[in-house]
Design a protein around this nucleic acid. Structure first.
Length: 467
DNA sequence: TGAAATGTTGGGGCG
DNA sequence: ACGCCCCAACATTTC
């Protein structure tokens, strides 16, 4: 029997993997392939931290396949060319994949499906990375939603998302073919090894452990998730980003907790809803990562200030909660969600710097930098996105710090210069009679920054109707 | 998934 | 005892 080619992309798992399951059930010997395609995505090829994750995740996937007697074939370059050559090399007559929803991926995959089908190759694609297809959740007149709450209500009125597929028994594989060596892809940092502080274990098994330990604490999620000094979030995002675990597996594991006391499970399911909402926004608005959804923002005059931007990136703005967040990001490849909102608001509003600059930095430094989430959320903070924060909503990083990191645990963990600052001043050390000499003064006066932002954004909001 | 300014209320001090 | 003022505490409005 001719082989089936399984093209892995953002579904680096064996469980609940409909494409893999379909290929296995076909009875054909399997060729499992991952292509590092940096050409198709253009600017949005995986950033540095995501590449670190990808390296380890591919390594884990290969080991899982090895346990089943197979291996993962690695190739690098334009996906279409590589697929064509492997189809020829192996004689495979069936090609399967799980769908990606980034606009460039949709274009590529649609073209390839037609091209290969025309050449007598059976091509099947599946949904492994969303609860529902973007086109399955629509308004009464069939349009995509622009506001989260009605989107969420519509999602909840659907039948339950499909149950995850049971784990596969045995797999059998086609003879081994040539593969790149993972180490030759240079996905890991070298010069400075900035990933040495990453406290993550990529891979499907680790994803499942993360889910299971999160479920033990999910009752506290509603309140604990806002406290960056606590470990109250699921930390599933990078696992989801590469599909080491699927949203349906998570949904059905969390659902039984949704009737217990406390809002934890419900609140968390809603976060999965935001993920779906972002995916839909990008699916229907291909310009989302690059252009403001609200066209009034197209001519907005952002400040260009390299010095301020560098201070933000490097976590030396002189505002403790901002610096703690930016340093957590650089050191661990991840930032607590509450602090993502605060740091993003500070960059956009207090510093007046373009949200795209922030978006690109997060893209490069986050291990969970999904295109849809990253773009939609930056635009949300900027006020140019869907269901966006109004322009006048400016986070005060001092108040946010006092509210959500009242003892300064989080700040002290990532900003050692402030370790000894008393609680009262931990979020505004410049008010100390003698501020720590090795910690910078604020690069912007918070009241002035807020004022400048309000003026600029107010002028913009009066310009013309939304586009 | 804000913050600050402004308005209102009501208890207590005090003449 | 009463009215006046002060000012938390809370609510509403505005940016």
């Amino acid at each position: 029997m001719k082989p089936a080619l399984v093209w892995f992309r953002q579904d680096l798992r064996l469980a609940d993997n409909p494409a893999l399951a379909f290929a296995a059930r076909s009875g054909r010997p399997l060729v499992c392939l991952y292509i590092l395609d940096d050409e198709t995505p253009g600017q949005w090829a995986w950033g540095g931290a995501a590449r670190w994750w990808l390296h380890h995740s591919l390594d884990r996937l290969d080991k899982s396949l090895t346990r089943h007697g197979g291996h993962l074939v690695l190739r690098r370059g334009d996906a279409g060319k590589i697929l064509a050559s492997i189809l020829k090399e192996t004689g495979a007559e069936l090609l399967v994949w799980n769908r990606c929803y980034e606009p460039f991926a949709v274009v590529r995959d649609t073209t390839l499906k037609k091209q290969f089908t025309d050449n007598e190759i059976a091509v099947e694609s599946f949904n492994a990375s969303l609860l529902f297809e973007p086109w399955e959740i629509a308004t009464k007149d069939g349009k995509p939603f622009r506001v989260f709450t009605p989107f969420w209500n519509a999602l909840r009125q659907q039948n339950e998302p499909g149950k995850p597929q049971a784990a596969l028994g045995s797999l059998h594989f086609a003879p081994r073919i040539k593969s790149d060596r993972l180490g030759d892809w240079d996905l890991l940092p070298t010069k400075p090894d900035w990933a040495k502080g990453f406290d993550w274990t990529p891979g499907e098994a680790s994803a499942r452990r993360a889910l299971s330990s999160f479920l033990d604490e999910i009752g506290n999620y509603a309140a604990a998730r806002d406290l960056p000094g606590k470990d109250g979030t699921s930390r599933l995002s990078p696992h989801l980003n590469f599909g080491e675990i699927g949203p349906r597996q998570i949904w059905h594991a969390v659902k039984p907790h949704a009737h217990a006391r406390g809002q934890g499970a419900q609140t968390f399911l809603k976060e999965l809803g935001w993920r779906e909402f972002c995916a839909q926004l990008l699916f229907y608005n291909s310009e989302l990562p690059d252009e403001p959804l609200d066209k009034r923002f197209a001519k907005f005059e952002w400040r260009r200030n390299k010095k301020d931007f560098d201070a933000w990136r490097q976590g030396r703005t002189g505002i403790p909660i901002i610096d703690a967040g930016m340093r957590q990001l650089w050191r661990t490849g991840w930032m607590h969600n509450r602090v993502r909102m605060i740091t993003a608001s500070f960059l956009i509003k207090h510093l007046g710097i373009h949200w795209k600059d922030g978006e690109e930095w997060f893209w490069d430094t986050l291990v969970d930098s999904g295109l849809a989430n990253n773009a939609a959320n930056w635009q949300w903070v900027a006020g140019s996105g869907a269901d966006a924060a109004p322009f006048f909503r400016v986070f005060n990083p001092v108040l946010q710090g006092e509210k959500f990191d009242p003892k300064g645990e989080y700040v002290r963990r990532f900003v050692p210069e402030l370790k000894k600052v008393p609680e009262k001043y931990i979020h505004q050390p410049w008010k100390l009679p003698e501020p720590p000499a090795n910690y910078p003064n604020p690069i912007v006066d918070l009241a002035q920054g807020r004022d400048r932002a309000l003026k600029a954004f107010k002028a913009l909001s009066q310009r013309q109707p939304k586009g």
